[in-house]
Amino acid sequence: MTALHLRLGVLLSWPMVALLGLGAVPFVLLLRISVARHDPNGIALSGLTLHAYGALTEPELLGALLDSIRLAVIVGAVSVGLGYPLTWAIARMRRRLQVAWLVFLLATLSLSDVLIAFSWQVMLSKRIGLSNLFVALGLMDGPESLTPSAGAVVACLVYLVLPFTVLTLFPVFSRLDLDLIQAARTLGASPLRAFLSVVVPMTKGPAMIAFVMAMVLTVGAYVPPLVLGRPQSWPMAVLIGSTALAGHDLPRASAMSVFLLAATVLLAFVAFQATRMRVRNS
């Protein structure tokens, strides 16, 4: 047994150093800064005070947190709502088309979120944007800018999150045994019944994981809500950024970050409990 432990120790020594050093230590640092004295000039790691956590009692911050959660749920729902049928379709495609779609989706990951946000600004602008199409279709009277708006933020975030949703759902949809559905149909079930009793149970787990991942990625979004959204609905990530970068108040930003992380964990927990799914190492 000791030989095994030694082996494991050697094998995992570098990953441990890397992950504990750059994963765990920074988080501890975050906690440390959040209780440190505010130094407007630099990064002072001295002092011990809970002053920064006082921020959590401010209603505007709680409002921003609610905005974060609301945005996360909406983006999660839309991205899974679109990604679920999309992945189903991709998994059923002929090989060449399937690979083409997968490469296409993956390639969009190579674009920075800043440039994606800028593209959405252009696409939703008054002069040359989507509204002109709506005018042509008779849905609007005159072109107008569709940004800043909540819809713009959701559209941009769904765009950024969708490839990850598809990647999460792909394995299970690809392995879906169509014979099972066929068997259910043969036994007299309607297509809907077959879908509900065969497909849904098998894909529920990954769908929930995809939903939670979309929510978590949304909670962390900084650039799109900043550029495409109204200040009244700026989520926590944006406020954390402005507190740290513009206000130079690291303890406050750190306290807000801890708060946001705690809320995210709670959100994921609630989401899983709501469908009684356990997080599985799939």
Partner: peptide, 14 residues
């Protein structure tokens, strides 16, 4: 899954 803005502040300090 951590928000990248939080991560980058933390890394900076680290």
């Amino acid at each position: 899954l951590l928000p990248s803005i939080v991560l980058s502040i933390v890394f900076l300090v680290f």
